[in-house]
Write a protein that binds this DNA or RNA. Structure first.
Lengths: 197, 197
DNA sequence: AAATTTAACAGACCGTGGTCTCTATGCAAT
DNA sequence: ATTGCATAGAGACCACGGTCTGTTAAATTT
């Protein structure tokens, strides 16, 4: 890596780190891009060479999510059935949302993802680790005869994911006034019943 | 009604009408508040005495939705079962979203409703006609022994509504690239299976 | 080594949603 | 009728996300 990109990466990192600290202090909407670049000793020009929008910052702040999914899929924990494993995976998703990311960030992401037609919709990028891990689970379930083959793995993932998003959206709407994990697990369990054999 | 409020109401109507026309022409995000007040021969001050935000305009533009729900509930159409009636109601919701309101408006509403903690979240106002009609249907179903009483009507409505919102949110995410009505009916049917007796 | 291209960055600038202040007028109280 | 008050409205102004242009230095080509 040459000096040029090295410096650029440092700047980018400085911006992300500053943003993270400020967000923790004052929340996403309590922090302006101006604040961030001042703290990072950068400039508008600097900021927007590294990020297309302010929201893109959030995405750069969540590599831990994909790491968590990866580590879930690589863990050797034993489950009674694939269905249990799937439930556990979905539970994991909700726990992470509630505990690690938190209401304000989730709301900001979910809001901005559909704000206008130009935003980059990373939630539905097909190479997300989430889809990959989920797909593995469903196919395993179908292979072992635990899950219906009337629907393709793709369709099943689509349906369950839609429900998960519904739960999360509602959680945002109701400002976190219900327990995401228990409500979510409950609702998804009902849906999973429909795809079990 | 005195002259004062009369004039105010006229101004408000002028703004709403101008906004509607402009939105139809150029879409929600293609129209600025400036455009609207110019067309309505009003001013910023005028606009913001009648509306707290630009998004609030959308809400004022959707009384037809509640009217539609009301007329659904008052229609004398015969159904084979309450479950059929419920399916028909939900189908009606999706059809209205897709045909009458459209992707851009829905996206704008769904995005703005969770944007920050201060917005008025009319989607979950408990006096919405939607909730009222839906509640009547579920209670009828429970009364006639078609629907489980293991869950309260309130819980059932909450679950189904969460799923509906999930479908709509996904539809926005995917920029309307799937058929809202058929995907939605399908998914909800699966969920309804779980509450049938 | 000189010339040319490229990309990071600084910072002035812009557009738009929303606020603030000031004015005018309808209305109620006397 | 006069006075005082409340509020619809006009429009200057502000905050903030995002763009544009110019500069500098590293990288690449000759």
């Amino acid at each position: 890596m040459n000096k040029r990109t090295q410096q650029a990466n440092q700047t980018k990192k400085r911006i992300i780190d500053s943003a993270r600290e400020l967000f923790v202090e004052r929340g996403y909407y309590g922090v302006t891009v101006e604040d961030i670049i001042k703290k990072a000793n950068s400039s508008k020009g600097g900021f927007y060479t590294h990020f297309k929008t302010k929201e893109e910052l959030i995405i750069n702040m969540l590599p831990m999510v994909d790491e968590a999914y990866t580590s879930f899929s690589q863990s050797n924990k034993e489950y009674e059935s694939v269905n249990d494993k799937i439930s556990s995976f979905i539970n994991y998703v909700f726990v992470m949302m509630e505990k690690d990311i938190g209401l304000e960030f989730i709301s900001a992401i979910y809001s901005s993802q559909i704000k206008d037609l130009t935003t980059q919709r990373f939630l539905i990028e097909s190479d997300r680790v989430y889809y990959h891990v989920f797909n593995g689970l469903i196919e395993e379930g179908q292979g072992k005869g635990e899950i219906t083959k009337d629907l393709s793995a793709e369709d099943i993932i689509s349906i369950i994911t839609t429900c998960i998003r519904g739960v999360i959206y509602d959680w945002c709407l109701k400002k976190g006034s219900f327990n995401l994990v228990s409500y979510g697990n409950n609702l998804i369990r009902m849906m999973l019943n429909q795809i079990k054999l």
